[in-house]
Every structure is written in structure tokens, then in C-alpha cells.
Amino acid sequence: MSAYSVTEPSKASKWVAAALVALYTIITLLPLVWIISTSFKSGPDSISYPPKVVFEPSLEGYVNLFTTRTRIAAEDFAALPPPETWYDEIVRDQGMVIAGPSRFGERFLNSVIIGFGSTFLSIFLGTLAAYAFSRFKVPLKDDLLFFILSTRMMPPIAVAIPIYLMYRELGLSDTHLGMILLYTAVNISLAVWLLKGFIDEIPREYEEAALIDGYTRFQAFRKVVLPQAATGIASTAIFCLIFAWNEYAFAVLLTSGNAQTAPPFIPTIIGVGGQDWPAVAAGATLFLLPVMIFTILLRKHLLRGITFGAVRK
């Protein structure tokens, strides 16, 4: 019989496992590293072959992301006064002049407004609904819960057809309010399922004690349940925010000029002769960064969130 704990693997197998995990991590991270490194490349560097691993860092991608540029005639170009700012200089080096700001800032702001708006609404409604599902006898409870979840089973395109027709009648198409309402409707299934799990974990006895002490139902909910569910609510909020932030299908079909979010905008960044890859990569980096940070903050509840509370660690 072996002396070590039976569940402990041998040293050799540990090394093999570690090597495999390391290899897998490298493969997984490579595309992400490539996005970030491309965002700091100059245009020619980004499309050179073989691909450049070592390159001179440049902010060209970021400058191109936030500006629109035009080419002007050579004699006019030579007659220009020397560039005033560092970003002017980068654009001049490409043989162009800045024509104005791009719409990226606007799109990014739209993403923020719509993301936070819909998160707030879905958490507000979701908490109340989850509390009711968790504490009261609701007729056909299980069926209702499954039905709420069924909104997630349809391809977004299928849902987009009636939404498009309704929004056109109501004047909501391509507005912030319309997108906030739509994302709320999509996210509320996640919010209810997750929050119900979190509230289920709070012992009923606390509220019952509060009710005996003369609190009303609502007071008990506000003063006893809410503080205990705070971390659960916070992580649910981050999940809703990430889903709204990443949403593409509805955004690309239902928005165009006014309320377009960043995901459908980033692929349309065009440079001279095709997509301006450093600018696309810069946009992607800025867009993905908040999600990466949030994911790290969330790692405790990550699995629970993506499985709608089905797997609890």
C-alpha cells in the first residue's frame, strides 16, 4: 500500500499535468495577447509577413480609433504648419491630416449608458421577483421559472423580428430607452434565477423574527434580506452588465445611427484598403478591458453566473 494520501497524484503525473496546463494556457492566451500587441503596432507592422512579434510600439491604432482622417493634395500637405500635438504628428506620419473625432467615443458611451441602465432595471425587478419566488407560494412556480428561462432559448434574431416591428410602431427603434428595455427583458431571466439562488440561501428565520418584532413584510425585506443578499446582488449586477455590454445581435439589427453600441461599431472601423487592424485592435482592447477586470473580481461566483445558478460551489 502506498503511504501518501490515496487522492494525491504521484510527482511525475503532477509534472505532466502542469506542463499540459501551461501549454493550454499559452494557446488560450495567444489570441488575446495578439489583440493587445496589434493595438500598439503601426499599420505596416500589423500586416507584415511573417507576423512581427518584436516591433516598435506605436500609438497609431489608438489615434486612428478616435479620429477620422483625410488625405490631402501633396502641395497642400507640404504647406501645412508643423504638427502641434503628438497625435497630430502620428497622423501626419501616415501622410494624412485629422478631419475630426471618430464616433468611437460616442459608441462607447452608448454601451455604458445602455449597459448600466438595463443592469439597474433588471436588478431592481429581478430582486423583487426572486424574493417572491423564493419566499411565497406562487402557483405553477416551477413552470413559471422555466418559462422565464425560455426567453434565453430563442436565437436573438428570431426575437428581433417582432421587436423590430413593435419598436417601429412605438418610435423606440434606435433609441437608448428601447435598447435598455430590450436588454432588461433579456437579462431579467438571468437576474431572477441567480438572485433566487442567493436569497434561498438566507435562512427564513431571520425574517420571521423580524416579522414577529412588528416589521412589515417590506421592512423585513429591506432591512434583513437585502443587506444579506448584497454580495449576491452585486455579482448578479456584474453579470447583467457583462451580458449587456457584450450583446451584438440585437444591437447590429436594431440600432444604426443614434444608439449603436460598441460591438457592432468596432468591426466597421475601416482604414485605407480594408480594415484598419491596429485601430480595430485598439478598440477591442479598450472594449474588452473592463470585462477582464470584472471577470477577475467575479471569479468566486463565475461558474454560478454562467450556469444560471445551476452549479454552486
Binding site: W245, N246, A284, T295
Partner: peptide
Amino acid sequence: MMLSPAVV
């Protein structure tokens, strides 16, 4: 996994 499938 949490990143936007569209952008990626």
C-alpha cells in the same frame, strides 16, 4: 469566455 464573441 466572458469576452464579447462579436469583438473577439
